[in-house]
Write a protein that binds this DNA or RNA. Structure first.
Length: 419
DNA sequence: TCTGGGGTCCTAGGACCC
DNA sequence: TCTGGGGTCCTAGGACCC
């Protein structure tokens, strides 16, 4: 058996942990740059606020309905996510952290009452962290997702749903719209609806060959999982990333080269940090920038440059140097830029870097410097030491007007209790 | 004024190898 | 006279997830 534990309205729930006065009220969290709605409390959902809705379009509505609005605070969400996962690890030797707010637990070999076990998980997370979660328990991962879906919907079940018999599974799948199934997105549900398939149960009645042909092995795997045949296994150790991307929209449009250089240098530095964290080096890089495609009346320009690095590296200094050169090659004066980004590819393990016969920088020396920089920044905070090109971000940094304090990760932001 | 950011996997087809 | 068999790598495009 597998359990899928999913935090309810995670970002909103994180904000509420430190603002209990917001319980029972409509609350939303915005994406980076205060762009779109990406998390909604139940009350906000009931008001009809849609996922992904641009915030400026409904600004008036939000105000009128007294919706509490927050900018994304990833430092807070990331930290609380860690704590949730560490609490979950008490319930199983096999935990797969699937995303910032979800995890699969293998319950293999456990002989307990599933319902009670789910309730225990839920109560523990709620007590330790103040975050409500839903628990779905079933024989395969896809079915655990289905169970979780029902756990969220049926409030009388108090957040736990178990699918442990063919009868229960059939009943659940007959009522489940096919596009709610994990792995069936917009395109496949369109394809399925053209075949008169509306529910997950009807999907199961399709011919395996047809599914394989039209939806590849991925679709067939989903079908088998729904039939109760486990095809997906637990991924206990997160595999190293094959591509790493850091990109942001700017708080305000940028025209000059200099702030763009700062931004791109900062993104390159973040990529370098991510590479070092997974003990990898990148052999290829892409730098891109573009104007705001939504502003149809303004001149548009978008360009990217992909190139091989002379030797695979995770040195901030090296990556910034190359990213900067690339930016200069694609930058054109006279446009209002909205977004830029750095992507690193051809990622290899640190130990398996192929040296370059013509290398003109000493990457071994760089590695030693990076190690010290990481150590200092880990202790004293990000960018305590940084490369000068990164600048201060004064001109281009994210808009985050409604940012909450970093209650759990900054000394100055810790809540003070008066006795 | 204003529209997020970061990933994975699979397939088909072409070029090329022995 | 006849037109094998087995394979890799790369790219573009399409699907999906949170």
């Amino acid at each position: 058996m597998f359990a899928l534990v999913d935090c309810n309205n995670f970002y909103v729930s994180c904000e509420r942990v430190f603002r209990p006065d917001l319980n029972g009220r409509p609350v939303v969290v915005l994406s980076n740059n205060d762009g779109c709605i990406i998390s909604r409390s139940n009350e906000a959902k009931e008001l009809g606020i849609r996922m992904g809705e641009p915030a400026f379009k409904i600004a008036e509505f939000l105000q009128k309905n007294k919706v509490e609005v927050f900018s994304s605070n990833y430092a807070l969400y990331g930290d609380l996510s860690h704590r949730v996962m560490s609490t979950l690890s008490q319930f199983t030797p096999e935990l797969e952290i699937y995303s910032i707010d979800e995890a699969f637990l293998s319950l293999a070999g456990l002989s307990v009452n599933w319902e009670e076990y789910g309730q225990k998980i839920r109560a523990t997370i709620l007590r330790n962290l103040g975050i409500p979660v839903s628990v779905g328990i079933a024989p395969t991962k896809v079915l655990a997702k289905v169970a979780n879906h029902y756990a969220k919907k049926a409030r009388e079940k108090q957040g736990v749903w178990v699918l442990d018999s063919p009868e229960r599974i059939e009943k659940a799948l007959r009522k489940l719209a096919v596009d709610e199934v994990w792995g069936i997105g917009r395109q496949y549900s369109k394809l399925l609806k053209a075949q008169k398939v509306q529910t997950a149960w009807e999907f199961l009645q399709l011919d395996d060959d047809w599914v394989r042909r039209r939806m590849t092995v991925v679709g067939l795997r989903v079908k088998k999982e729904l039939e109760g045949i486990a095809c997906l296994t637990m991924e206990l150790i997160p595999p190293a990333k094959k591509v790493i991307c850091t990109s942001r929209s700017f708080g305000t449009d940028q025209t000059d080269l200099e702030p763009l250089e700062e931004a791109v240098a900062t993104y390159a530095a973040r990529c370098a940090e991510k590479l070092r964290r997974q003990h990898s080096c990148a052999g290829m890089m892409m730098v891109f920038l573009h104007t705001n495609g939504f502003k149809e009346d303004e001149p548009q320009y978008a360009k990217n440059l992909v190139f091989k690095l002379p030797a695979a590296t995770n040195s901030t200094i090296e990556l910034i140097r190359h990213a900067r050169a690339a930016l200069r090659a694609i930058y054109k004066k006279g446009y209002r830029y909205k977004k830029a980004g750095v992507i690193v590819m051809e990622i290899v393990s640190e130990e398996r870097v192929q040296g370059s016969l013509f290398a003109c920088v000493d990457l071994v020396k760089h590695a030693a410097i990076m190690k010290q920089i990481d150590r200092i920044n880990a202790k004293y905070g990000r960018d305590t030491i940084k490369i000068a090109t990164q600048g201060s971000g004064e001109k281009w940094k994210l808009r985050r007007r409604k940012l909450s304090p970093c209650y759990t990760t900054r000394w100055e932001d810790i809540i003070k209790v008066r006795v």
